[in-house]
């Protein structure tokens, strides 16, 4: 207990300095990669590039920024309508698209960034990174089958998890969660409306927050 008062200001100071340094590094990286935009929220650097510059940006990140460790590649489906889960928060202004994300990092320090490129839904095509990072091959096969993306230049773009004859792309928001269509999952009561729907006023969210704080 005696240690904690002296520790706390130190960590606060570190936290105040760190995001700035991270933002500075992100801005510098965005310059190196000729990026369109960058962000450094929640300790995560994201660099947005145009999809035509996708392979160039990855090559530059590897050769000029020291981000030569291939961590993962995947995508996010931004849709106004969703068949599973909760929709995005700003549905009206949402631009429907796939965000292809690729995380690269360094093996000399903690540096790392996610490259993001938006791909339109009616033409989900982007360059393959296989020639830049050997590890991209499997990740691109997964993203291709799960989101219906096409990676030009991939030598062997076949399904990796799903059977060859599988129809549809499971991680698209339009793809239903079949097990749930057949039988409602009992845990659903925890997800939907337990506190709000309850007749008792005690079950409101504010009351719940209060209970937690007690």
């Amino acid at each position: 207990m005696t240690d904690s008062p002296s520790d706390t200001p130190e960590t606060e100071e570190n936290e105040a300095v760190e995001p700035d340094a991270l933002a500075q590094w992100a801005e510098q990286l965005a310059g190196t990669l000729d990026a369109e935009a960058w962000s450094a929220d929640h300790g995560t650097v994201q660099i947005t590039v145009d999809r035509t510059a996708w392979r160039d940006a990855a090559t530059k990140a590897r050769d000029k920024a020291g981000l030569n460790f291939f961590s993962w590649l995947s995508a996010t489906d931004w849709s106004r309508e969703v068949t599973v889960g909760e929709p995005a928060s700003d549905v009206e202004d949402l631009e429907e698209r796939f965000d292809v994300q690729c995380r690269l990092s360094s093996v000399a320090n903690a540096n790392g960034a996610i490259l993001v490129a938006s791909v339109p839904k009616d033409d989900p095509v982007i360059d393959s990174l296989v020639t830049v990072f050997g590890g991209a091959a499997w990740h691109e096969r997964e993203a291709a089958e799960m989101f219906g993306l096409r990676f030009t230049g991939h030598p062997h773009l076949v399904n990796i998890y799903l059977p060859d004859e599988f129809e549809g792309h499971p991680l698209r928001k339009s793809f239903p969660l079949l097990a749930r269509e057949v039988k409602p999952w009992p845990g659903t009561v925890d997800v939907e409306g337990m506190p709000e729907d309850g007749p008792s006023t005690e079950n409101t969210e504010a009351a719940a927050v209060e209970r937690g704080a007690e």
């Binding site: 929220d41 929640h42 300790g43 995560t44 994201q46 928060s89 995380r103 790392g112 996610i114 506190p195 969210e205 719940a208 927050v209 209970r211 937690g212 704080a213």
Partner: peptide, 13 residues
């Protein structure tokens, strides 16, 4: 922590 966990909008790795 609040009993009902609502995570603010954001992305992190």
């Amino acid at each position: 922590v609040p009993r009902v966990l609502k995570v603010p909008r954001g992305q992190t790795y």
